[in-house]
């Protein structure tokens, strides 16, 4: 029937994903006094000079832009932690390290708006870029090993990553679902991957390093 699966209806644009990330809280150190702000999205403040306070990222960025505060980068953005995460990502090819759901967007927003508040910004930025690349590569190589399942669970996949892999994963699962009927299951062994018993849901399988899928 006409027009039933428009893959774009369910997709979030990058600015929309960023919009959602802007509600995440960060700590700022104001340099001025201001009364509490009673917003629709919550109450923040009061603000006193040199007293740290938590606000949503968008508010932090707005105050920073006007020179009213400095932003304290979150704990997970320390070089020490990022190095640990990157090592973990490289060592364990099957699973993902625990990172904030919006780590890509948060770090991007902070790089854009608060570069002078992040110590060793070049190092931090390159670590995060490496982490992002390793993770995307990992998703792609793991997707190669995809086999018929009625559900795929991926621990610690981030918002932006979900958004990137969604079109492919959904189409692949749909195709499997269509062909997934007991009679056809027999054929499964003769298809590319030889995992004898098909467990229906699981983490994405471990696998040795392979050529990445074609880059977009």
């Amino acid at each position: 029937m006409a027009g039933q699966s428009d893959p774009h209806v369910s997709l979030f644009s990058p600015p929309e994903v960023e919009f959602m990330a802007e509600d995440e809280l960060v700590e700022i150190v104001p340099n001025m006094r201001m009364d509490p702000l009673n917003f629709i999205c919550g109450d923040f403040g009061p603000f006193y000079p040199q007293i740290p306070v938590k606000v949503p990222l968008w508010l932090a960025a707005a105050l920073k832009k006007r020179g009213k505060c400095t932003i304290r980068p979150p704990q997970w953005m320390s070089i020490e932690n990022l190095t640990k995460v990157l090592e973990g990502e490289r060592e364990d090819r099957g699973t993902f390290q625990a990172v904030p759901f919006h780590y890509i967007e948060i770090s991007r927003l902070l790089f854009d708006h608060a570069r002078d508040d992040i110590p060793d910004i070049y190092m931090v930025r390159s670590l995060i870029e490496d982490i992002r690349d390793v993770r995307l590569h990992k998703v792609e190589t793991n997707l190669e090993k995809f086999s018929a399942t009625s559900a795929v669970k991926i621990a610690h996949l981030s918002a932006m990553e979900v958004n990137v892999v969604r079109p492919f994963v959904v189409r692949a699962l749909q195709a499997f679902y269509k062909h997934d009927n007991p009679v056809l299951m027999v054929d499964l062994d003769s298809v590319s991957d030889r995992q004898s018993h098909v467990t229906r849901q699981r983490q994405m399988p471990n696998n040795a390093q392979k050529q990445p899928l074609k880059r977009r």
Binding site: K153, I154, L157, T199, R200
Partner: peptide, 25 residues
């Protein structure tokens, strides 16, 4: 915990898990 039609084991989701699941489920 989700019951899947074609599996005996339920799909268990923690808060940090992202799952791709059949919409009807």
């Amino acid at each position: 915990s989700l019951r899947l039609a074609d599996s005996e084991r339920p799909l268990e989701m923690e808060r940090h898990d992202v799952s791709f699941v059949l919409y009807k489920v």
